[in-house]
Amino acid sequence: MTELLKVEGLSAGYGEAVVLQGVSLSLAEGKTLALLGRNGTGKTTLINTLAGATRQHGGSILLAGKALHKMAPHERAAAGIGWVPQERNIFKSLTVHENLTAVARPGRWTPDRVYEMFPRLGERKSNLGTQLSGGEQQMLAVGRALVLNPRLLLLDEPLEGLAPIIVEELLLAIRRVTRDEGLSAIIVEQHPQAILRISDSAVVLDRGTVVHAGTADELLDQPQLLEQLLGVAR
Rank of each mutant, 00 (worst) to 15 (best):
Q21I: 09
Y14A: 03
E136T: 06
L27G: 13
I195G: 02
L5T: 05
E181V: 06
G80D: 08
A185Y: 05
A17R: 15
G9T: 13
E160V: 15
T178F: 08
E75P: 04
G52N: 00
K92Q: 14
Q193K: 15
R151G: 05
I174H: 10
T178A: 08
R234K: 14
S26W: 14
A145W: 03
W109G: 05
G13V: 07
T2P: 12
I165E: 07
S133F: 06
I81Q: 04
T44S: 15
V177T: 05
M1E: 12
A173C: 09
L100C: 08
V103F: 09
V114N: 11
A233W: 08
R124F: 01
K66H: 12
V142R: 00
M117Q: 14
L183D: 00
A28R: 15
E168F: 01
I166R: 00
Y14T: 02
E75N: 10
I198P: 00
R113V: 15
S201W: 01
L196H: 06
L121P: 03
Q190G: 07
V84I: 01
V142K: 00
S93H: 13
K31T: 14
D221I: 09
D206M: 14
A79I: 07
L121E: 03
T54P: 00
G107C: 09
G135L: 03
A233I: 10
V210G: 10
L146Q: 02
A64V: 07
A78N: 09
W83R: 08
L159R: 12
Y115P: 10
G58R: 04
K125G: 00
E136K: 06
T101L: 06
A78S: 10
G42E: 03
A202Q: 01
A64I: 05
G129C: 06
G82S: 11
G80P: 07
N48C: 10
G80T: 09
I81G: 04
D206H: 15
R234M: 15
V84S: 00
L50Y: 04
G22I: 14
V188N: 02
P192A: 14
E169H: 03
V19R: 05
L220H: 11
S24M: 15
L100N: 08
D206C: 15
Q138S: 06
L27I: 13
V147D: 00
V210M: 12
K6F: 04
G161R: 12
Q131Y: 07
E227H: 09
G37V: 01
R179V: 11
L140M: 08
S133A: 05
E3D: 09
A79H: 07
L33R: 11
N39I: 02
N48H: 14
L132D: 01
F118V: 04
V204G: 01
Q190P: 07
V23K: 14
P111S: 13
L132E: 02
V204A: 02
D112K: 15
G52M: 00
H191A: 11
G52Y: 00
L140N: 07
P106M: 09
F118T: 02
E98Q: 15
E157F: 10
D180K: 10
T95F: 10
L153P: 04
V211K: 12
L20Y: 06
I165M: 09
N127Y: 13
L159C: 13
L159P: 10
A216R: 03
R197H: 04
V167E: 02
L152E: 03
H57I: 09
G13P: 06
L183S: 01
G82Q: 08
P158E: 08
